[in-house]
Amino acid sequence: MKIIRFSFGSKVQYGTLNGELVRGIHGDPFENFNITGDEFLLGEVDLLPPVQPSKIIAVGLNYKNHARELKMDIPDEPIIFIKPSTSLIGPNEKIIYPVMSKQVDYEAELGIVIKDKIRNVSKEEAAKHILGFTCANDVTARDLQKKDVQWTRAKSFDTFCPIGPCVETEIDPKNLSIELLLNGEVKQSSNTSNMIFDIYFLVSFISKIMTLFPGDVIITGTPPGVGSMQVGNVVEVKIEGIGTLKNTVASKV
């Protein structure tokens, strides 16, 4: 099932997406819900970020071929950092190029959406605490990342975490193709089978550090081919079984 969050007129609600048909739901996708009789065409609604996380936890250097590309050692443990909820945007929203940066990069990533409040879960228990998966773009001010000792500034600008277009609840995340297209040209192309730390290990590892809440998002690292975006560029993250997350880069007004 593809779960979306959307607005129609002044009303914001969750729904399901099947092709071009949007059906409203009553209740909470993290608990029990019913599909209502409200139906819309996809072109009639505005897609929003599919969830509203309290926090976004990101994983660095989690693809074997990306580590080889950078000539870096495989890490012994996941490298994690936080992106604030204020960095979140949805499909078709604009990524704003910060005035203080001269190099803004794309990073296509698979996002995990947490289903319920968890703390200290095992790898074996992790699957039952996942609502589903989404596309994400870990936008990064690369020049500032290299300048700073830690990554908070480079990763945290408003609009630096597009996610969407949906949360897919019925896919196996271990073997999915993942691509990034810049102005229609493929720049990143890999498969989640190349991850160093798999989805369930990451959920367990992070839950042993911090409490995770329903709707929290873990973005799981990027494959090789990271590069820069310019104002006016169109960037698309495509993940097998989920769909395409499309955004445009815009200058700060």
Rank of each mutant, 00 (worst) to 15 (best):
K187H: 09
I35T: 08
K71C: 13
P165E: 08
K128Y: 10
Y200R: 04
M100R: 05
I242F: 14
P84F: 07
K252H: 13
I178F: 07
D172K: 04
R68N: 15
F81H: 05
L180Y: 05
I95N: 00
L212K: 01
Q13S: 14
E107H: 04
V237C: 11
V253N: 14
V22N: 01
V237I: 15
T169Q: 12
I96E: 03
A141R: 00
Y63W: 06
K94E: 07
S251H: 04
H129N: 13
T211D: 13
V217T: 04
K64N: 08
D38Q: 10
P29G: 10
C161L: 13
T211A: 14
S204M: 10
V139M: 11
L47R: 00
V231S: 12
P50L: 06
E39I: 09
S228G: 12
N247M: 10
T192H: 03
N194M: 11
P50I: 02
G227K: 02
N233I: 05
E179H: 09
P223A: 10
L181H: 07
N183R: 05
V51I: 13
K94Y: 06
P53M: 09
F213M: 14
V104S: 04
V51W: 01
P75G: 08
I95R: 00
E107Y: 03
A141S: 15
S204F: 12
